[in-house]
């Protein structure tokens, strides 16, 4: 590698963002070239001065009721267009069966049983594990989603959330009610059981807007000029 190529690759090298093979080439050149060594030193200095400054920003901790507030806000938002729900074959088939009038009554009780089983299966392992007691100051009530949120396997937890979501969609709630039943389950977990789950307000269509990460806020630098802010 010559000095010109070095100039191109040194910034990435200084950042630790370079493949091992190329790093070896760079190091071989650095061993014999004082000019490039000096340049690397400058890059390191520049980087660390900025880094030191930014590390002076304080860090905070989430408030103790952070999780509770997220979980409380959640069920009301779980209404998404049907097309976004990935079909689950077993539940699809159950759904078809329960759609028949004769089976409707039976269906609701079977659904209740399914929910119960699901909750038990989620909560039971926790109550058996002694080391899994809530952290001090943790006010989060036991809930389906809290159970989901404490596991260590991220993929499994996301899958579980999807299942819960799909179940909610199939609970017979109106199109807009989404995880209506989950809201009920959450409430039951927190306080004395209620006779009837509270009826959620139907979400207006406008709530089903495109997710914000599609808005392209960051993609175009021109859309975020610094001048408009203080």
């Amino acid at each position: 590698m010559n000095c010109r190529e070095m100039k191109r690759h040194l910034p990435d090298y200084a950042e630790g963002e370079i493949a091992a093979a190329r790093a070896a080439e760079i190091e071989a050149h650095l061993a014999v070239c004082a000019a490039c060594r000096a340049r690397l030193e400058t890059l390191h200095g520049e980087r660390h001065s900025v880094r030191r400054a930014l590390q002076a920003l304080p860090r905070i901790q989430a408030s103790p009721d952070f999780e509770r507030r997220v979980l409380e806000a959640l069920p009301e938002r779980m209404a998404l267009p049907q097309r976004m729900v990935r079909p689950l074959s077993l539940f699809d088939r159950l759904d078809a069966v329960f759609a028949r009038p004769v089976c409707k009554l039976l269906g609701s009780s079977v659904f209740g049983l399914l929910c119960g089983l699901l909750i038990v299966s989620l909560l039971a392992p926790r109550s058996l594990s002694a080391g899994d007691s809530p952290a001090p100051g943790d006010t989060t009530a036991p809930s389906v989603l809290a159970a989901v949120s404490e596991g260590t396997d991220e993929v499994a937890a996301i899958r579980q959330l999807r299942r819960l979501y799909a179940l909610g969609r199939r609970s017979g709630a109106a199109e807009d009610d989404g995880l209506h039943w989950l809201h009920h389950v959450e409430k039951v977990g927190k306080q004395a059981p209620q006779e009837k789950p509270p009826r959620l307000q139907s979400l207006p269509r406008s709530n089903k807007k495109e997710p914000p990460w599609n808005a392209g806020i960051l993609v175009s630098p021109s859309s975020s000029s610094s001048g408009s802010w203080c």
């Binding site: 997220v70 938002r77 998404l80 976004m84 996301i158 959330l161 999807r162 979501y165």
Partner: peptide, 11 residues
């Protein structure tokens, strides 16, 4: 978090 969980199906 609420948005991410609510839209878990679009992830």
């Amino acid at each position: 978090f609420t948005q991410a969980f609510s839209a878990i199906n679009s992830f």
